[in-house]
Design a protein around this nucleic acid. Structure first.
Lengths: 341, 341
DNA sequence: GACATCTGTTTAAGCGCTTCGACACTTCGA
DNA sequence: TCGAAGTGTCGAAGCGCTTAAACAGATGTC
């Protein structure tokens, strides 16, 4: 194993000089810097992570706690995980993957052991048990998702209320008057997952402003549950012409069922999905969708936590930031003006 | 921050005694052990990860290198990542997430810095550039996927050849004689991804044994490409009654297109998918599928690497293991006997 | 009763790095 | 010309842990 002492000997300097070249924390002459850098390259030196963490009291690792649930669309989680990892690397950080089932103890473990300099939490509940732990330990954190009380924390999330409103506006603009909002399974609402509630209320408020009538129906996203949900909608509100779907799993079944029931999309029914562009393009017809960037979510969370770690390192109180990312409406082939019948 | 010295003082012993209680590497009296353990609990002590890694030359971290590609079904990757993380935790290990875009240098970095005690690699190509790095550094590794030459490495993968054969057998048993095999996009084959080639050849061999005629068509998994693929199949081989689909993205479009072309599943055409059970159940009709457990893949890889790390720690040469997991055929509603027409 | 053996504990070295303070040398301003 | 300030480098302490070696005391052996 190549150590900093090997590099120092090879370059004919002291090991502290090598350290300063690598960290840039002190001025070093061009000449010395060049010699050290070429020794580093020649010997293939990589600083020992443990020693560095111990001496600098900074591990250059952030932990990412991912949910185990499968009622959240999995590819989005993966996209976030990957974008977090890549953003972190750009700051010289690595990412430790923690699963949600470790719960508050997991957060405690990571903080107390100094394994990670900060934690990014996903699948935030409105009253999340992990948050008090964070605060009591002084562990730096960024949340992907908005808790009830974000005091003393940095958060980033999609602006779900705006996404809901965008759906209402688009359907209203096209002349629809009776809308069905097909949400997540009812478990998501009883758990008070913020994103589901905020989408719905954003949609509901704008719908009211625009004079739309709507029903909200939870839906598990299986074929059976979608069939049941749709049957009930069509029985209760046969005049329904607009569908907003938030549960990705329900999209395929819904399109199939609408076709089966003799409704053509978009002539007889408009469907707008709250999902990733990639997914929206996979259906026939390609779906009009409202999308937020999962990548940005990960990137912003990393930037927030980097700022917090840096501030804490300078002995300052980290700035709490709440960022909501504006969603985008992409009109494709599944929405159209309500037909004159 | 609570250190081992704090615990030692609190329990009235030396810090090495605390260390030995925690690691179990020396005999400690029941009485002392109890006192130390209660001090640990009372003070909320977690050993400092950096110090531990430095002193013991073991980080208790394994790195998991995940692909960025999206042509592999993403939820499967996530499931593997999660099962790796949970299996690692059971061994007192944490998981560091690395993206494939770091390539061989990433492997070098992790190994040389002692950040991780071992690496799990996914998305293995038949001649993978990362493998020579592993070998030259002596970094312990387990591969999820089979390289061309697995000498000196532990690997685990689905038995894709058996999966392909299972598909051929099932369709042959039902009396089908003309089969279309809808594979991954052609990029996957030119990249020589082992899983795609092995599935195809396992299918092909068994098909020949059972007297089946078949065509193999690569397919991107978009709606358009599936439409093109199917049109060509039906034009070239109008007698085709059996479909084997490996690309998850193509499943939905294929079902829709078959329906559109007036073919009922399973009466006129049987469809068998190589995909996760969860996905297979989402379609209508629910798909007969051949599935391997993604969870087992992750679990086995972790167990392999743990054995390797342990062996290397004892100064022994780690055992190379190659494990193929047997896939399972689940008959659902999308396959049936060929209809007498 | 002297010696070896076993059990349980402590002492102390050292893992590879960062960083504080010291130092030598140069440059500047008065 | 001298002290002050700035620049570039080094020496050494110390981060919190593990572990080899030493040691103290109990137990067994002849």
């Amino acid at each position: 194993m190549v150590t900093i002492a090997d590099v120092a000997r090879h370059a004919g300097v002291s090991s502290s000089t090598v350290s300063y070249v690598l960290s840039g924390k002190r001025a070093i002459s061009e000449e010395t810097k060049r010699r050290v850098e070429s020794s580093v390259r020649e010997l293939g030196y990589h600083p020992n992570a443990g020693a560095r963490a111990l001496a600098a009291r900074r591990s250059h690792i952030i932990a990412l706690m991912v949910p185990l649930r499968t009622d959240v669309y999995v590819p989005v989680m993966m996209e976030i995980a990957v974008s977090v990892t890549m953003a972190a690397r750009r700051h010289g950080y690595d990412v430790l993957l923690i699963t949600n089932d470790e719960g508050p103890d997991g957060v405690r473990r990571i903080g107390a052991s100094g394994l990670a300099d900060g934690v990014i939490l996903m699948d935030i509940e409105l009253e999340d048990e992990r948050i008090p732990v964070l605060q009591s330990q002084g562990t730096q954190a960024a949340l992907i998702g908005l808790p009830d009380d974000p005091g003393g924390l940095s958060c980033v999330d999609h602006d779900f209320a705006a996404a809901g409103a965008l759906c209402a506006d688009h359907l209203a603009d096209l002349g629809h008057r009776e809308i069905a909002f097909i949400g997540y399974g009812s478990g998501v609402y009883t758990r008070h997952a913020g994103y589901a509630e905020r989408t719905l209320s954003g949609f509901g408020q704008r719908a009211a402003q625009r004079g739309l009538r709507y029903v909200h129906r939870p839906c598990d996203g299986t074929y059976e549950s979608t069939a049941g949900t749709l049957a009930r909608i069509l029985a209760d509100r046969p005049e329904t012409t607009g569908f907003v779907v938030q549960n990705e799993g329900a999209i395929g079944p819904l399109l199939t069922l609408l076709r089966t029931s003799g409704r053509t999309v978009p002539e007889d029914a408009s469907v707008i999905a709250l999902c990733q562009a990639q997914l929206a393009e996979q259906f026939a017809p390609r779906l009009t969708s409202v999308t937020g960037s999962a990548q940005d979510l990960g990137r912003v969370a990393v930037e927030q936590i980097m700022r917090r770690i840096a501030a804490a390192g300078r002995g300052e109180r980290p700035q709490d930031e709440q960022v909501l990312l504006t969603p985008v409406l992409t009109v494709r082939d599944s929405t159209g003006p309500v037909s004159a019948s």
